[in-house]
Simulated assay, not measured.
Amino acid sequence: MLAVLQVVLLVLDIVWWLVILSAILSWLYAFNVVNSRNQFVDAIGNFLYRATEPLYRPIRRFLPDLGGIDLSPLVVLLLIFFLQQVIAIYLIPAVYRAGL
């Protein structure tokens, strides 16, 4: 059971970094730092969009429209942090106590 929790924590860490990379790339697109016509940059952007958009979409329905500011990555990062803390503080010690 502990191995399953560690895999879940690893997946949450990977999603954390994907969200951060997606936000950084969106800023680089917005300020024309990267060439969006470059195939490599476009492939990375497309991957990050497909990986993170399913996480953002439900949150965007509940957040107010703030114009050009998108707070959904911040909300996703806070949810990931919350889940990691719940696993680390409550679930892992419970698994140790249960001897699973």
Rank of each mutant, 00 (worst) to 15 (best):
A30K: 12
I44K: 01
R57K: 13
V95W: 01
G68S: 13
A88K: 15
V33G: 02
S22H: 10
D42V: 10
G99A: 02
L77H: 01
I87H: 09
V33I: 15
G45V: 04
N46P: 00
V19R: 02
L2Q: 12
I24Y: 05
I92C: 04
E53V: 00
G45I: 08
L9I: 10
Y96R: 15
R57Q: 13
L71D: 03
P58K: 01
N46V: 13
T52P: 06
M1I: 09
P54V: 04
F31T: 14
L2F: 13
N35P: 09
R61I: 06
A88D: 12
V4I: 14
A51E: 09
Y96T: 15
Y29S: 04
I24F: 08
F31G: 06
P58L: 01
R97F: 12
N46Y: 09
N32V: 01
R97W: 11
I92F: 02
I14R: 08
I24P: 04
V95K: 08
L5A: 11
A43T: 14
R50T: 11
V7W: 11
P58Y: 01
R37M: 13
Q6E: 12
R50V: 04
S26T: 11
L48R: 06
D65Q: 13
Q85M: 13
I89N: 14
L78T: 09
S36E: 12
V19T: 03
G99I: 04
W17D: 03
P64Y: 01
Y90G: 14
L63S: 05
N38H: 09
N35D: 14
L21T: 06
T52M: 02
L25V: 02
L48T: 07
L48C: 07
I80R: 08
L5Q: 03
I20E: 02
L63E: 03
A30V: 10
Q6F: 10
A3S: 15
D70Y: 06
V11L: 14
L18N: 07
P93N: 01
F62I: 12
F47L: 12
Y49P: 03
L18K: 09
L91T: 05
R50N: 13
L91P: 05
D65I: 07
I14L: 10
R57L: 12
I87V: 15
V33F: 12
R50F: 08
L48P: 05
L78P: 05
L77E: 02
G99Q: 07
W27H: 08
A30H: 14
I59Q: 01
Q85L: 14
D42T: 12
L74E: 01
R37N: 13
G99W: 01
A51C: 07
V41D: 02
D13Y: 06
